[in-house]
Design a protein around this nucleic acid. Structure first.
Lengths: 286, 286
DNA sequence: ATCGAGCTTCCGGTGGCCGGAAGGAGGCGC
DNA sequence: GCGCCTCCTTCCGGCCACCGGAAGCTCGAT
């Protein structure tokens, strides 16, 4: 987020990266399309001498951050996944959103996605896909540009102005001919998204699919995530989907404690027992 | 694990752990119930001097492995979650299993769980829970003992004999009075699980809930995961659930390429897998 | 047999890591 | 206000743990 190196670069030096950076560099070597790597592959990708990589990878594997398969190649280990699952912006969010995603999935039998923004990109946190649904390009844990996707436009529309300007100033990648790449165009689209509270993206990721996305708000009213449904472009009738997406997004916002999504006092007693608030200052763990 | 220090201990001890171990120790400080920690909390838990923790945590945060909240506390970062999502035993499995879990969830509107074994414990990889379903104790990314859970008994029943003996020899924790803690008892139960291809656990985790679990096999026929449904103990009729769980587990096995789960031309007996006619690589992945 | 790619182990030199100490920023009880 | 606490941040000299070249090993392929 805020560039930590604002002051004066400092530790960058010809002597080389720190041990920590090397370790993290090893983890970075893995990625979509590179789920399994040989030791020398890791060394090559991370730019490390083989013997150094050997030692570090060995330590990572013995802890469980990496696992070595029968083919001798390394993969990300279950232990690392476990730790990663503690990230509040993934699992915490996912946990509360799941029931609503379920319902939406069940209603459409297509693709339902939940995403957050990280920097200038969208990161998909959850995806429910019917095997026979239209193929989508995204993947849980994957990234996409903000301008080209429904969830991205929503997240950008409600992002801090500084972020919006940075993205509008930067390159706007096109995934299809219909992707919005003109800054003025995008600006208008974002305004519309803010006004409507929903984004409809037709054929911007894949010519054959259309997505409808809506914002999810946290307890401080900020947009913390976005939810979308992806359906085949042909014969899609967004009108029928928009209300469902809006409703689900609102439901999740309510589950997260967003005041604006709170149930209005009707005649009925609030049926949902508010979750026993965790003490705001739940101090020392363990 | 075979003790790696077989040769001559050497680096162990008074000099202290390596940098890598310290970094991993910092990550280990986080866990269920400790999702957000202060710097000094991390230092305390990981057993590091404050200044050392400060430096290492700073490096982790600037890479994105940790994130610092507005309250000054650190949490696991999105970037680390992303890397963790590449673990084949979590996401790869989950991706293929999801549609079946969906169906099972939709049919029961209770709790559906998918788990794998790691060492002598169960690790939950996925969980679909209806908000009004019976409360379950598990959590995605969480661990439970093998002897006390339906998925655990299944995973143990089909684990390598060496693992079984280790577990049977070790302590068998009791979560409720009905948890199986007698080795002989457990041995008989495991045999039954192998025979039936399903485990039914009544009140072993929580007196009020019952779970039905079945094995999921990979392309080499080994049991790679287990699937379960958890329902309220009272009034539950396992007979009606068992077939659904079995069917879903079989469906996932087929999706993973298990020969024994392949569709037969005719629907009769002969469970023995003879020479598979086609290589299992037929997958049309990605 | 010969080759090459990848993996593992060894070991001496040195530069990066370590962590005590000092100084600031809040928060709480009195 | 004042003292006391906890938590965070920065600094810097000393030492040792990390680094990585080199040699040897295990496979398969040619």
């Amino acid at each position: 987020m805020s560039p930590a190196q604002g002051g004066h670069g400092g530790r960058r030096s010809p002597s080389g990266p720190s041990v920590t950076e090397r370790v993290l560099g090893i983890l970075s070597a893995f990625g979509p399309g590179a789920e399994a790597l040989t030791l020398s592959g890791i060394a090559r990708t991370a730019g490390l001498p083989l013997s150094t990589a050997h030692r570090l990878v060995g330590e990572l594997a013995s802890w469980g951050a990496l696992e070595r398969g029968e083919d001798g190649r390394y993969r990300i280990g279950l232990r690392l996944w476990e730790v990663g699952a503690l990230a509040p912006r993934s699992l915490g969010l996912r946990e509360r959103a799941m029931p609503y995603l379920e319902d939406l999935y069940e209603a459409t039998r297509q693709n339902v996605q939940l995403a957050v923004r990280d920097g200038h990109e969208v990161v998909y946190v959850e995806r429910l896909a019917h095997p026979e649904a239209v193929r989508v390009f995204s993947r849980v844990g994957g990234r996409m540009p903000l301008n080209a996707t429904g969830v991205g436009q929503v997240l950008l529309a409600f992002a801090p102005p500084a972020v919006q300007e940075e993205v509008l100033a930067g390159p706007l990648p096109a995934l299809t001919p219909r992707t919005i790449t003109d800054p003025q165009d995008l600006r208008r689209t974002l305004a519309a998204v803010r006004r409507e509270g929903v984004a409809v993206c037709d054929g911007m990721v894949d010519p054959l699919s259309l997505s409808v996305a809506a914002p999810v708000r946290g307890e401080d009213e900020r947009v913390v995530a976005s939810l979308s449904v992806v359906v085949p472009s042909a014969g899609a009738e967004p009108r029928t989907i928009v209300p469902a997406v809006r409703a689900a997004a609102r439901g999740i916002s309510r589950a997260l404690g967003a005041p604006s999504a709170r149930r209005r006092p009707t005649g009925v007693v609030t049926p949902v027992p508010t979750a026993p608030d965790t003490p705001p200052r739940a101090g020392r763990g363990t």
